[in-house]
Design a protein around this nucleic acid. Structure first.
Length: 266
DNA sequence: TTAAGTGTTGCTCT
DNA sequence: AAGAGCAACACTTA
């Protein structure tokens, strides 16, 4: 579930910690650490001042000055929470940063898919992980997007979800973007003409920005989902919010994509 | 009660 | 080499 808009909200949580010092770091699950041992990470984090937060695709970076950047990935259902002094530790806390002032920054990850690492910088991490440009990067423009589509032999949904081509979009938002652009998910990417590519690019930008603006990111706030979004109907038995037709599904390996067979024809 | 579904990355297989 | 498919995980729903 944490795709670009969700991680953008986690970034704001991280930003609220700007200026705070990590008095102590506690690794709750060493199995989520990549390339560093628990004791070493705790030692490297301790005493550091949080200087801000950055995002690239689905990855979040907590900036720690000379210590580099703490890189967090949320897998399928991870999250980041600021926990008040005296409040109980949330379930599934896998890393906890105890901050000056008494609050704690808690990285939660029930399913333990995702990871924690320490990198020199966001740029260094992005290069090492071979991530494509962030889907909302202003420098990633329509010509660059259209070139990706033309180059690919795959279907358009796979292209949208490929983090090496563009970073930030997963199963849920690829469905949403294709629905908004009225494009069938199984369409060959290279078969989209300039008009369709432009429509898709606009829908991508618009959908992600709207999701961030509405603070979609938790089921608790589903009321905030715009009425024309596929999201709240995105389930077995769901109906198109635009025309009322029964939604259809398309299998992508083990994952299910939803689309409206009437609004998104082959 | 058991089995399938959920979503992401990284691995294997072709 | 590019692309497809599955394992890993914990929990919910059929």
């Amino acid at each position: 579930m944490p795709e670009l808009p969700d991680v953008e909200l986690f970034k704001r949580v991280g930003e609220r910690c700007r200026g705070r010092t990590i008095e102590r770091a506690v690794v709750g699950d060493p199995g989520l650490l990549n390339g560093i041992a628990a004791a070493a990470l705790e030692r490297r984090l301790r005493g550091r001042r949080i200087e801000g937060a950055q995002r690239h695709g689905k990855h979040l970076f907590i900036l720690l000055g000379e210590a580099g950047a703490l890189a967090l990935h949320f897998g399928t259902n991870g999250s980041l929470r600021l926990v008040a002094e005296g409040e109980a530790e949330p379930p599934y806390t896998r890393l906890e940063l105890r901050l000056s002032g008494g609050e704690r920054l808690a990285y939660l990850n029930p399913r333990r898919i995702g990871g924690i690492s320490l990198s020199a910088s966001r740029a260094a991490f992005v290069a090492a992980a071979k991530l494509g440009p962030d889907a909302l990067d202003p420098a990633f423009d329509l010509p660059a997007f259209a070139a990706l589509l033309r180059r690919s032999k795959r279907d358009v949904k796979s292209v949208l979800m490929d983090q090496a081509l563009l970073a930030g979009i997963g199963n849920i938002y690829s469905d949403e973007i294709l629905f908004q652009a009225r494009i069938f998910p199984g369409t060959a990417a290279k078969s989209l003409d300039d008009r369709a590519a432009s429509r898709l690019f606009g829908a991508m930008r618009e959908t992600l920005a709207t999701a961030i603006r509405c603070e979609i990111g938790s089921e608790q706030f589903l009321t905030a989902v715009p009425k024309d979004f596929l999201l709240s109907e995105r389930r077995q038995g769901g109906h198109c919010p635009r025309c009322g037709a029964a939604l259809a599904t398309v299998k992508h390996g083990a994952r299910t994509g939803y689309y409206c067979p009437r609004c998104q024809p082959h």
